[in-house]
C-alpha cells in the first residue's frame, strides 16, 4: 500500500514545493531536513518556477510494468529557472521533439495507474513549450 508515502509527497508531486534554508538560502527539491550546503535545519516552503530547460534526455522503450501503457516515452533531467533540477517524463512528446536545451514547462499528469486496486498516482511531468 503506497498511500502514506503518496500522501506525504503531495506538496512536491502536485505543487513542486521545495525547501529553502533560512540560514543560507539554498533551495532543495525535495525539501531536506538538513541543508546540504550549510547544515542548517530550518527550512521554509518555496514554490519552484515551472519553466526550465532539458539538460539531458532519453526515450524509454522498455519500462517497468507500471509504465507499460505509456511507452515509448521521453524522460529528461530538467533544470528549472532557479537552477533546481529534477527528473521527469516529457508528456505528449514524440522523441525527436526533445533535445538538450529544449524549453519546457512543468505540468500535472497521472504518472501511474497500476495495479488497478491502488490509488492513482499523479505528479509532475514536463511539456515542450511551443
Amino acid at each position: 500500500m503506497i498511500t502514506p508515502r503518496y500522501h506525504r509527497e503531495i506538496p512536491q508531486r502536485y505543487r513542486l514545493e521545495g525547501g529553502k534554508c533560512t540560514q543560507c538560502g539554498e533551495v532543495h527539491f525535495p525539501p531536506r531536513a538538513v541543508c546540504r550546503k550549510c547544515g542548517g535545519r530550518e527550512m521554509e516552503t518555496v514554490d519552484l518556477p515551472r519553466r526550465g530547460k532539458v539538460l539531458t534526455h532519453t526515450t524509454i522503450w522498455i519500462p517497468p510494468a507500471q509504465f507499460e501503457s505509456q511507452k515509448p516515452y521521453v524522460v529528461a533531467v530538467v533544470e528549472l529557472e532557479n537552477g533546481v533540477r529534477l527528473t521527469c517524463m516529457v508528456a505528449d512528446a514524440p522523441p525527436d521533439e526533445v533535445k538538450i536545451g529544449t524549453e519546457v514547462e512543468i505540468i500535472f499528469r497521472k504518472l501511474q495507474s497500476d495495479p488497478r486496486w491502488e490509488v492513482l498516482q499523479y505528479g509532475y511531468k514536463a511539456k515542450v513549450v511551443g
Partner: peptide, 16 residues
C-alpha cells in the same frame, strides 16, 4: 486524452 490524462489532470490544467 493521452494515457496519462483524465478528468483530474484536465481540471488542473484548465484551473491553472
Amino acid at each position: 486524452p493521452g494515457p496519462d490524462e483524465d478528468t483530474i489532470t484536465i481540471s488542473v490544467a484548465a484551473g491553472r
